[in-house]
């Protein structure tokens, strides 16, 4: 690992001032991704500001029913929180299906949003990767692409976004609160992550001098009946091949509200707007679920190793919606 100077920020203002005033600085929270990336030589900041002592650890309900989650709340704490478990089970489940208990104990909400891809070519210094070394090419294309994206990819990058939590947040229309010396702004989660296009190294809407301070979960009554399904190569402790976050409300057999997001198949946490539009107002049947899923995956561009994801994503969407619907009718 390349040496760096280390500062522990006593308060948010100091952290923001320091990053505004200097070059090549990274904030460090749980470390589960950044420390790994630094050890691999992919990240090599000159200065690391430890933000774990900042007071961004609250989970509170605002008067309008929004839940505000501090950026330094650990993944495990968020998943265990009673409010989250009852109002947003999709989020708790997504978090619990990610990584391991040890990593969830370390990883923070803000850090999770900034996770970088697990594409093995991104991690390998000897391979070409436009995300790691812009302009070098993409060895994942034509290489081992089982983990790669079929949606949102470009000729420059097919890396998937690895977060489960973010898929649930996209489904919930969460808002990311970011702060810099210039003030606070709120970024809808859908605009937070970027597709690679021809700048795959630019992954989020976060500016170099900004800090994620919180996420806000708006009230989503339908989310009380939501779920997250993750399909992967091991029964646990593995990244998603396909994951589906979904909430469904049905009245008299017709879908009155549906929220659907996909993980493991796209270059960013993927809100399935096409499918949602087709489903809204339609009858809650397997055929309609399948038709909507097919429409969502229609633009997919697969590689030789990940063609199956198109089929798998559709099957998983149908399975999740079918189960939600059945549970709903049963209750």
């Amino acid at each position: 690992m390349k040496p760096f100077s280390y500062l522990s920020a006593p308060d948010t203002a100091t952290a923001l001032r320091t990053i505004a005033d200097s070059e090549d600085v990274k904030f460090l929270a749980g470390g589960t991704n950044l420390v790994d990336l630094m050890r691999e030589g992919i990240e090599h900041p000159a200065t690391v500001i430890d933000i774990t002592r900042l007071p961004l650890t609250g989970i509170e309900e605002l008067p309008d029913g929004t839940i505000r989650v501090g950026a330094l709340v650990t993944n495990s704490r968020l998943a265990a929180d009673p409010l989250i478990r009852t109002r947003y089970p999709v989020l708790a489940k997504a978090i619990l299906l990610g990584a391991s208990a040890q990593l969830r104990n370390m990883a923070t909400v803000g850090g999770n949003l900034l996770q970088r891809t697990r594409c093995m070519y991104f991690y390998d210094e000897a391979s070409a990767c436009n995300k790691r070394a812009p302009g070098s090419g993409c060895d994942a294309i034509g290489g081992f692409s089982r983990g790669s994206a079929v949606l949102g990819a470009s000729e420059h990058c097919i890396a998937t976004h690895p977060s489960d939590m973010a898929v649930a947040l996209v489904m919930l229309d969460a808002v990311v609160e970011v702060e810099s010396v210039h003030g606070i702004r709120h970024v809808p989660i859908a605009e937070f992550h970027r597709v690679p296009g021809d700048t795959p190294h630019i992954e989020t809407a976060l500016a170099a001098d900004e800090l994620i301070t919180a996420i806000e979960l708006p009230p989503v009554p339908a989310a009380a009946h939501s779920s997250y399904r993750k399909v992967r190569d091991r029964a646990s402790y593995a990244f998603a091949l396909v994951s589906v976050a979904a909430a469904l409300a049905v009245e008299d057999g017709r879908i009155t509200e549906v929220r659907l997001a996909l993980g493991g198949v796209a270059t960013k946490p993927w809100r399935a707007h096409i499918a949602e539009e087709l489903l809204l107002g339609a009858e809650a049947t397997d055929e309609n679920f399948a038709r909507a899923a097919a429409a969502e995956l229609a633009p997919a561009l697969p590689q030789s190793d990940n063609t199956f994801k198109i089929d798998l994503a559709q099957r998983t969407v149908v399975a999740v919606l079918r189960k939600l619907n059945a549970e709903r009718s049963a209750s």
Partner: peptide, 20 residues
Amino acid sequence: RNGRTMSAGLDSYYVPVHAD
């Protein structure tokens, strides 16, 4: 294409975990 071992970590070479 080049003979490089890409499954060079326990995150890319999947040995069974407890849950399996």
